[in-house]
Amino acid sequence: MKSRIVLFIVSLIVWSALSWAVDWQHLVIGVLVSVLVAAAAGDLFVRRPHLLRHPARYFYFLFAYLPLLLWEIVRANLDVAMRVLNPALPIRPGIVKIRSKLRSETGLTFLANSITLTPGTMTVDVDAESGTLYIHWIAVRSTDPEEATKAIAGRFEPLLLKIFEEDVVE
């Protein structure tokens, strides 16, 4: 039930942002559609609603994770643009394996998406049970799993552990 309420609030916010006209007709239709969506989807999207109650998680997400992600995206793009415009085409690709301490699906999804958007790396496959990620790396520096984990996921993993995992709550 809690997950449906969360989904209802999220879809109502998206509806209001899309229509952007405050009058009662829009709001009534929005409430109806949101109720329909929440009833149909159920707990498909929000599996662990009790995690949404810790303000520290929002704080880490907004002020530590998002700026880091933005900075890494800009760096990644300059890196790729330099590689593409270079006449010698300096690439040395390969698929390496890294191990993550994250176990929840949301956390692994965010880690995979962050890896795809950061310099030179792209997620090819995720194995959720053992926390293994296969990463396509455009300039391989080390094929050892531990070193690759440190080089690729080292910056994001501690933050995502604080945001999405259940045990690490202060």
Binding site: A76, V80, V84, P93, I95, G120, T121, M122, H136
Partner: peptide
């Protein structure tokens, strides 16, 4: 870029 994976990297990010 030479193969599908490298192309995906460059094009998706940029």
């Amino acid at each position: 870029l030479p193969d599908v994976y490298n192309r995906l990297q460059a094009s998706t990010k940029c």
